Amino acid sequence: MINQVHSEQLHPSSIIVSHRPLFFLMLLLSYVLYLVIGAFVFSTLEQPYEDQLRNKVEEMWNDFLKSHPCISEELLDDFLRKVLFVRSFGVSVLRNTSGFGVKWDFVSSLFFTATSLTTIGYGNPVPISESGKIFCLFYSIVGIPFTLSLLSIAAQNLLFFLRDKPIHVLLLRCNFARNKLEWIYTGVLISLLSLLAFFIPAIIFNFIEENWGYVDALYFCFISLSTVGLGDYVPGEKSGQRMPALYKLLVICYLLVGLIAVFLVVELLKSLFNCNQVFNLFLFGCDDNRRAEEMEQDLPSDSALPCVSKHDETTRRRLPHSASPMEKSYGTINPCIS
């Protein structure tokens, strides 16, 4: 009996369960370290360029004041603050026809709702009125889970048609090991999805957006489909854009289809690497079955249960059959007395 208890205590699953808090702490520390490394790299790469731009702005400021001595520095500073404040709401301050284009027409509003509900959120434009902000709040509470659920369901359906059925057909016709076939097929499928979602659209955006290089366009595609949406690159904002309404509608379609492709890639990687088993290492209670097993280990055995009323349903199941209240007792011995 002692050896059995000792072997149960040394079971690998019980050791993993006891170390889950430690695994979670290591995961948390790894994430903090990842954040620190990212901050250090960005600071190293971007701060020199920030200093260059700051010096260039200072030179432009001084040159402008020298060329226009009638304008005081205080008035110019106040004017620029107001201009930048208005620009932060997505309203152009340039005095030309394209610059004063309407930002909240129907197509632009549709572009805003699509980028908001997909959590991309370029921030150009943003609601200005209080009523618009309140409506955006309640609209997004319902719309964001609805949109993400729709994209996830679409990805799951595509997973069946693009992976499960083709692999099943290939297994019937070819003499391949299933694990090897899944790795090869999934790698090819992820490569095709990446090509269709990132690299080919980047070529199209590079052609349409004249001031975007290919790296800029590829950066926009990744930042958008990863739902980061920094807003430094927004399609259809240049002056003289041909058919801007149609262009924005096509961009909306690209974002929705691209996000489905990203969801599909995530599902493919999860199934390929068995991510659920890895995630379970960091969960205190990974699933219902495991939690039930762990709770069952903490319960006392049947012999250690105290005597309780025989009318209790739980106790009735634990007592021997002869002690059931539905059966006649042929002796005077109380079954609760040892």
Rank of each mutant, 00 (worst) to 15 (best):
T44L: 08
E46A: 10
Q47R: 06
Q47N: 03
P48K: 06
Y49V: 12
Y49N: 15
E50W: 07
E50P: 04
D51K: 13
D51F: 06
L53F: 14
L53V: 12
L53Y: 13
L53M: 14
L53W: 11
N55G: 10
N55F: 14
N55P: 07
V57F: 15
V57G: 11
V57N: 15
V57H: 14
E59T: 06
M60L: 15
M60T: 12
M60D: 07
W61L: 04
N62G: 05
D63C: 06
D63E: 11
F64A: 01
F64N: 00
L65G: 04
L65A: 00
L65K: 04
S67A: 11
S67H: 07
S67V: 08
S67D: 03
S67W: 05
S67N: 08
P69Y: 03
C70S: 15
I71W: 06
I71P: 01
S72H: 10
E73I: 15
E73F: 14
E74R: 12
L76G: 03
L76H: 01
L76I: 10
L76E: 02
D77N: 14
D78G: 07
D78Y: 14
F79P: 02
R81M: 14
R81W: 13
K82E: 12
K82I: 13
K82F: 14
V83S: 10
V83E: 12
V83N: 11
V83P: 04
V83C: 10
V83D: 10
L84Y: 14
F85W: 09
V86N: 11
R87T: 11
S88V: 06
F89P: 04
F89H: 11
F89Q: 04
V91Q: 07
V91M: 07
V91E: 05
V91F: 08
V91R: 01
S92K: 06
S92N: 13
V93I: 05
V93N: 10
V93K: 09
L94C: 10
L94E: 09
R95K: 12
N96S: 15
N96D: 15
T97R: 15
S98D: 12
S98E: 11
G99L: 13
G101M: 07
V102F: 05
W104N: 11
W104E: 06
D105I: 04
F106Y: 08
F106K: 06
V107D: 02
V107W: 02
V107E: 02
S108V: 06
S108D: 09
L110I: 09
F111N: 00
F112L: 04
T113V: 12
A114P: 03
L117Q: 02
L117E: 02
T118V: 05
T118Y: 03
T119R: 03
T119M: 04
T119H: 03
T119G: 03
I120C: 09
I120D: 02
I120V: 11
G121H: 03
G121N: 10
Y122C: 00
G123P: 01
